[in-house]
């Protein structure tokens, strides 16, 4: 009975693989999505649809990059605070709220970012998208930082302090380096969680059919593209290539995180 759980995983993997495989090509990754019109023409002519998901890849990378730059330091600092002050009432309160934020549905994060960023900026943008992703990443990074720091033996911190270091230096040069493994895996997992999110990007980044590098205008993302393909009868073929890309990326991140966690834990 338990083995049956492996079935869906393999089924999904297999399905996406089969359907998407023939679509992958260099062009697929470097060209932006075709317009519905072009696609329609190609289908009528019986040819493969031109274009690819480059706009989505670029968009995802840009938004992820911006989100990571903010979420990682913020998450680590917050996690350090929670680890150092675990008995403090305020810290426990923040801990509860972190869990709350983590469990918040991604649509809600999308709505919030819409209210906070899209409305004041009077438009959709990559910035808005990355704010949404950032909010989703922070709780995960906070948790992994806090837990890894707490597991460190107390003697490490005490030895550092006994040498005369102040708390900041002991944290920076002794505790955080020692906690690096757990923190890094936490970051990998946060990224893998967020890279496939569609809902929060729907009302923040909106999507765009061009490859775009500016951050204050609407931008595409791979999951957004998949959603667009799903909704457009002419672009259905492209769904699978994009999904394969996304799926492999996410699985690679997850497996890497697991492997590193094991390696660093002996």
């Amino acid at each position: 009975m338990a083995a049956l759980t492996a079935v869906p995983l393999l089924a999904i993997l297999g399905e996406v693989l089969l359907r998407g495989y023939h679509q992958l090509s260099w062009a697929f990754f470097t060209e932006p999505t075709p317009t519905a019109y072009k696609a329609m023409k190609a289908i009528e002519a019986g040819e493969p649809i031109p274009g690819g998901i480059a706009n989505g890849i670029v968009g995802t990378m840009i938004m992820l990059g911006m989100a990571v730059i903010v979420a990682v330091p913020l998450g680590i600092l917050c996690g350090a605070f929670l680890a150092e002050n675990s008995k403090n009432r305020f810290a426990q309160f923040v801990s509860y709220l972190t869990d709350l934020l983590q469990g918040t549905p991604s649509v809600i994060i999308g709505i919030i970012t819409y209210i906070w960023v899209v409305v004041p900026m009077k438009g959709y943008s990559a910035i808005a998208g990355s704010v949404a992703l950032c909010i989703m990443m922070v709780p995960l990074i906070v948790r992994s930082t806090e837990e890894t720091l707490k597991i460190l033996p107390a003697s490490l911190k005490e030895a550092g302090l006994a040498l005369g270091g102040n708390k900041a230096r002991v944290m920076m040069r002794v505790q955080l380096p020692a906690a690096f493994g757990g923190i890094f895996t936490g970051i990998l997992l946060a990224v893998s969680r967020v890279i496939g999110e569609t809902a929060p990007l729907m009302f923040t980044a909106l999507g765009c059919s061009l490859i775009r590098f500016s951050v204050d205008k609407p931008i595409s993302a791979v999951p957004l593209l998949i959603w667009e393909f799903f909704n457009d009868p002419n672009l259905q073929e492209l769904i699978w290539g994009a999904s394969l890309f996304l799926l492999l990326f996410v699985l690679a991140l997850n497996l890497t995180a697991k492997y590193l966690a094991k390696k660093w834990n002996q």
Binding site: S155, A159, G160, A162, L163, R173, V174, A178
Partner: peptide
């Protein structure tokens, strides 16, 4: 200076850096 019951060399530093860690921490 203090030496504890369980030897606690800093695991992310080399032996060289461990000896000098007092300076870098200060």
């Amino acid at each position: 200076g203090m030496v504890f019951q369980r030897p606690a060399p800093f695991p992310t530093m080399s032996i060289y850096d461990n000896v000098l860690s007092g300076f870098s921490l200060n």
